[in-house]
Design a protein around this nucleic acid. Structure first.
Length: 799
RNA sequence: GGGCCCGUAGUCUAGCGGUAUGAUGCCCGCCUCACGCGCGGGUGGUCCCGGGUUCAAAUCCCGGCGGGCCCA
């Protein structure tokens, strides 16, 4: 190798390497058929903007490091990248961008607008990640492709056949703006200022007045009960009596129920169908009658206030109550209202026909399965289990939106008006709102008229089977039967445990009676320098390419790996990126140094210090391999940084430099070769261990050295014989080096200057006497004590 | 309102029963033939506060305060 290589790593080499990797076909999934297969269930990112932020990208870099490590362990890794493109956010974005409302535009056209917008983002998204050196196989078919949607639909049809899906009229949290039902995780809460209204009801049996406090007076016509807390002595006497509800005068029971808070308002609470989820729960529990007064657009649809929007109705009814002398008082109040996660519109609970997937009856089984998955780190298992325990409703999966997977149902409308759902046989991509029904559907509806369902699925219906898609379920290389579920790993953030992870588990259980994958790797969130989440609205989003352009991808990857422990949040920290850059330079220069010697063909007789550094490396390798195997990149990053820099470079290389050069023939040829052989052995092995984290500098050096890619090498377990060296000798030599350097420093000497004295060291260190003598340029190296102690422990003397 | 996590030198971070790890910053030296994006040496901490358990607490328990996340 030439000595004329620049002393600094040039980050432009990274872009050359990406081109080389691409031309070598490294980004394509390869299944040998002989090696074990491992699937990484890459999170398909949602393309609501053209670039992921740097925190998100860092987690993808982690996945890449794991993929690269596994490949070097002799495994065929399926590491796909495709986009999640279905769902509400893109629709909302299009509506905002063009100032339109989805349901007022021809559906075909609206869907096309969404698709085009997404296409614009995807190319740049992929290119940015590639610039980070990510080695995924890019699959252009995202969750909105016929290929993926076909799978979503077929798995749904399978569940339908098994009776796990039902359509029911059910009170459902509903967004009047988006005109869709929402599932539990899609509900958010927002503080809102409102009035708590104290309203007079009459007790039917006694004629006395009772006062009820409510923030939702417009729901009075839907009120079906009044409750008080069972321990509330003030109202015990009302138990079993009835209340007359203004203004329409319906008579409802007065019941004790623990959900009533005696401290809130008057302690008497009206229960309406449907004010909120608590109302819903009580209505179900007490089997109260259902009074539907709100329609899909959020308008009152019955009685005196019909046609008014919720807020208008509220104002009007308050006015009427006032006029009738039934409004006792109003208190200002700030409370939390449930809102739509996407558009923040306050939700209503209305009754619609929705499709539900059964989950409540399987809670115990799901918890059992959750205990069978391996969580890294383990503490996140409880988050999933707690969530399963808290579920109260089946999963509503139908949505009245547009850019999503169509529900594959046709409705057979009989002459008598009866509607029968018919599902096709599966295996195709069905668009019932647009396409004619397939023959098996027409055959099943000879006596009726067919209507295609216009609804779509909740997007988690798509992403909850990503682990099947990633395993090539729809692809030519389909390894699903081979890897499911033991060789699939799900990497994801803790923020979507209750959604992506939970629904994946549910779907796997319903489809296969099993877990979806054996391993769950939970990463923390990437935060800004101050430790706050990055949000466009906050203006603290750090671009994912700027630091790469400044410091190079290897440096940024080093930050990604080293910034935080697995499962903990990690902050953006330019210092660590800079440290990564310096480490790249260090690695580069170590490589230049080692490669300046011809590698000995045969293994020479090693000296004790050579054995000692190998023993040290043995230990580092064991720990690093074990950590990598647990999908941790933080430990390896720190272990390798410290070993390569502060053991290998600072001490071993310094100690054996004279022996390796052997300019004046002080050492025997065997001794010299031992140094060079060991330099190579340590360098080779540590480069391989580092390659998953810093794939660029390690590959460039490896190609110069051996004319092939480091990424084709195998990381074997370290040879057992390495462990026979004496690692404590190495620690002792480090202390001696430091002591001498400190001494020279205090004497104002250059470290390269000769010291006209003998060095006295512990007996053990004499095994490296010659190396010590020439490294420190002392007269002699002797055992015992000299005239002057130069360390804290009394080990090192000179004189 | 509930749950979970976190609070260690200017900054970031490890330790999680025996008074503290590393990085960075700062100061001082060194052109040592792989590297000045380097090498060496030093400086810097009531381990958020209060109480408890213990021979002994950053470390365990309780209560605050501050920050974050998830959920209602």
């Amino acid at each position: 190798m030439s000595q004329r290589l620049p002393t600094r790593w040039d980050i432009r080499w990274e872009e050359e390497l990406i081109k080389i990797w691409d031309s070598e076909g490294r980004f394509k999934t390869k299944i040998s058929g002989t090696r074990p297969v491992f699937v990484i269930d890459t999170p398909p990112p949602y393309l609501s903007s053209n670039r992921p932020h740097i925190g998100q990208t860092a987690s993808y870099a982690h996945f890449d490091m794991i993929a690269r490590f596994m490949r070097m362990r002799g495994v065929d890794v399926v590491f796909p990248f495709y986009a999640d493109r279905n769902g509400l956010p893109i629709e909302v974005q299009i509506e905002k961008k063009y100032g339109i409302v989805a349901h007022e535009v021809p559906r075909e056209k609206f869907v096309q607008m969404c698709k085009e917008e997404l296409d614009k983002y995807e190319g740049e998204f992929v290119a940015s990640l590639r610039r980070w050196g990510l080695s995924f196989d890019y699959w252009p078919n995202g969750t909105d492709s016929p290929e993926y949607r076909r799978m979503t639909q077929s798995t749904f049809i399978e569940l339908w056949r098994r009776g796990l899906v039902y359509e029911a009229e059910r009170p459902t949290p509903w967004c009047p703006r988006c005109r869709t039902a929402l599932a539990e995780p899609e509900i958010e809460y927002k503080e809102e200022e409102t009035y708590l209204n104290y309203i007079k009801f009459k007790v039917k049996e006694t004629g006395e007045d009772i006062i009820i406090a409510t923030t939702r007076p417009e729901l009075l016509p839907a009120t079906v009960a009044v409750i008080f807390h069972p321990d509330d002595q003030r109202y015990k006497r009302l138990e079993g009596l009835h209340a007359v509800v203004p203004p329409e005068g319906q008579v409802v029971p007065i019941l004790p129920h623990r959900a009533a808070n005696p401290q809130y308002g008057t302690g008497l609470v009206m229960i309406s169908t449907f004010g909120d989820t608590r109302d819903l729960m009580i209505v179900n529990e007490l089997k109260l009658p259902i009074r539907i007064i709100v329609d899909e657009a959020g308008r009152i649809n019955t009685g005196k206030y019909a046609g008014l929007a919720i807020r208008e109705a509220r104002a009007k009814i308050i006015e009427d109550l006032k006029a009738a002398g039934l409004l006792v008082k109003q208190e200002r109040l700030v409370h939390n209202v449930p809102v739509c996660w996407r558009c923040k519109t306050p939700l209503e609970i209305i009754v619609t026909r929705e499709l539900f997937i059964k989950q409540i009856e399987f809670k115990d089984k799901l918890i059992e399965l959750a205990n069978k998955m391996e969580f890294k780190p383990p503490e996140y298992r409880q988050v999933l289990i707690d969530w399963i325990k808290s579920l109260e409703l089946d999963w509503p999966v139908s949505r009245r939106r547009y850019y999503a997977t169509e529900i594959p149902i046709w409705w057979c409308v009989k002459p008598n008006g009866e509607r029968m759902p018919i599902v096709p046989k599966g295996g195709e991509y069905y668009v019932p709102w647009r396409d004619p029904p397939p023959p098996e559907v027409t055959d099943a509806c000879k006596d009726g008229r067919l209507e295609g369902d216009t609804r779509v699925f909740d997007t988690w219906m798509d992403s909850s089977i990503s682990w099947m898609y990633a395993s090539g379920y729809t692809k030519e290389f389909n390894v699903f039967p081979k890897v499911y579920p033991h060789s699939i790993m799900r990497p994801q953030g803790y923020d979507i445990i209750r959604t992506w992870l939970y629904y994946s588990l549910l779907r796997a259980y319903l489809l296969h009676g099993n877990i979806p994958f054996r391993y769950v790797r939970i990463n923390g969130m990437g935060l800004d320098e101050k430790g706050e989440a990055m949000h466009k609205s906050k203006g603290n989003v750090i671009d994912l390419l700027a630091p790469v352009e400044k410091y190079g991808a290897d440096s940024v990857r080093f930050w990604a790996a080293a910034a935080g422990r697995l499962g903990s949040d990690y902050r953006y920290n330019e210092n660590i990126i800079r440290e990564g850059k310096e480490f790249v330079t260090k690695v580069w220069n170590i490589s230049r140094f080692v490669l300046s010697f011809p590698e000995p063909a045969e293994r020479p007789q090693l000296m004790p210090i050579d054995m000692a550094i190998l023993a040290k490396l043995y230990d580092v390798a064991k720990k690093a391999i074990s950590a990598y195997s647990d999908f941790d990149v933080y430990e390896p990053a720190h272990l390798l940084y410290n070993f390569i820099w502060h053991d290998f470079a600072d001490h071993y290389i310094e100690l054996v430099k004279s022996r390796a050069y052997n300019r004046d023939g002080t050492f025997t040829e065997e001794e010299q070769k031992a140094a060079v052989w060991t330099l190579y052995a340590v360098w080779r092995y540590s480069m391989k261990l580092l390659a998953p984290i810093m794939p660029f500098v390690t590959d460039k050096a490896w190609r110069l050295a051996f004319g092939k890619s480091i990424h084709d090498e195998t990381i074997e377990d370290p040879p057992e014989e390495w462990s026979r060296g004496d690692a404590s000798l190495f620690e002792l030599l480090k202390k001696i080096n430091s002591a001498v350097w400190r001494y020279k420093n205090r004497q104002g000497m250059s470290l390269a200057a000769s010291l006209d004295k003998a060095l006295y060291v512990p007996e053990a260190a004499l095994q490296a006497a010659k190396d010590l003598k020439y490294t420190h340029k002392v007269l002699d190296v002797r055992p015992g004590h000299g005239a002057e102690q130069i360390d804290d422990e009394g080990l090192v003397w000179i004189g």
